[in-house]
């Protein structure tokens, strides 16, 4: 089990002929993801470098391939439209990797997405989602997993390949900090059920509570590692939700304790506005909800192992 995607998920890439779209379609295929095609306006009817069919529209792609998930690399001015096209075309898991989508576009897109039942948007401005596959005899080759996005696949570990037999779910607002958490968990003998990079923008698709709730009901997730950052109140809302509903241990790290007020730290969402969106306020709220909050990003993996009661020597 896993959440959102698994080895059977058929995936298309919107913007498959662009530099990033082509590069990461190849990377996902190499990981073992069932990439089945892509879209690129004006290039329908052709094939990409991997022999995957290119379609004019998502509707056509879905009809012809049966895809249920999409990875979007469309440039920022058109990304909002691409998200809505995916939803209208019948895609259920939409992963918008594109960075730099205007906030007002996302306000409209979010409101319109509510018209489509059962659609999950991940991102924009995110690394994507991965359900790790099993190791094979060949180094860095996996099978049965699903990687939709730009994360390095090889750092992830399937539960059955981990020495502890335990798996955590990972939710994060940041890309590379997610990799750091995955790497630490894998190093400490923990597998991952699914890792979701929800993205660093203020208006996005799935948020902490949505993903926490999926992990709560997922039989394959033993604990959750949650990585937040300064800006907004999503972590505080998540803390309230955890207190009321969460049945599994949660470990959290909040980035940006050292960030000054009023300065935007890269992400469009990472800016401290008031007293409530500081790292300190978020950590306090999570602690009050029973979450194990780590002060240092170096201890995400060890803490996850600790809350699961497993002590495994570091795998070097």
């Amino acid at each position: 089990m896993s959440i959102l995607v698994d080895g059977k998920t058929k995936v298309i890439c919107q913007g498959i002929t662009g530099t990033a779209g082509a590069f990461h379609t190849k990377g996902c295929l190499a990981y073992g993801t069932r990439m089945v095609g892509g879209t690129s306006p004006g290039k329908g009817g052709h094939s990409d470098g991997n022999g995957l069919p290119i379609f004019e529209t998502v509707h056509e792609a879905v009809k012809s391939t049966g895809a249920t998930a999409s990875m979007i690399f469309v440039p920022p001015p058109y990304a909002g439209d691409a998200i809505l096209e995916a939803a209208d075309g019948g895609i259920k898991v939409i992963c918008a990797i594109t960075e730099g989508v205007p906030i007002q576009d996302m306000v409209r897109v979010r409101a319109q997405l509510d018209r489509y039942a059962g659609v999950s948007l991940i991102g924009p401005n995110c690394p994507g989602v991965i359900t790790p596959g099993r190791k094979t005899a060949q180094a860095n080759v996996f099978t049965g997993g699903c990687k939709i996005g730009i994360m390095p696949g090889y750092i992830h570990t399937h539960r059955l390949d981990s020495p502890t037999g335990k798996a955590v779910g990972i939710i994060s607002r940041s890309g590379t900090l997610t990799y750091e958490a995955v790497w630490q968990c894998s190093r400490h003998g923990l597998g991952q059920s699914t890792c979701v990079g929800i993205g660093g923008d203020p208006i996005k698709g799935l948020d902490f509570i949505d993903v926490l709730s999926l992990f709560n009901d997922d039989a394959d997730t033993d604990a959750v590692v949650m990585i937040g950052e300064i800006g907004g109140a999503a972590e505080i809302e998540a803390a309230h939700w955890i207190k009321a509903h969460m049945r599994k241990p949660v470990v959290a790290f909040i980035a940006g304790a050292a960030a000054p007020k009023g300065k935007r730290m890269g992400h469009a969402g990472a800016i401290i506005g008031g007293a409530d969106d500081t790292a300190q306020a978020k950590m306090a709220a999570l602690r009050a909800a029973g979450v194990t909050v780590v002060e240092t990003p170096a201890e995400m993996g060890t803490s996850a192992a600790l809350v699961l009661g497993v002590e495994v020597p570091v795998v070097v």
Binding site: L177, G266, A298
Partner: peptide, 17 residues
Amino acid sequence: LVNGAGLAMATMDIIKL
């Protein structure tokens, strides 16, 4: 010098710690 905003903030945090 870090890649990624979240990791860059986390790096500042750990230096301070």
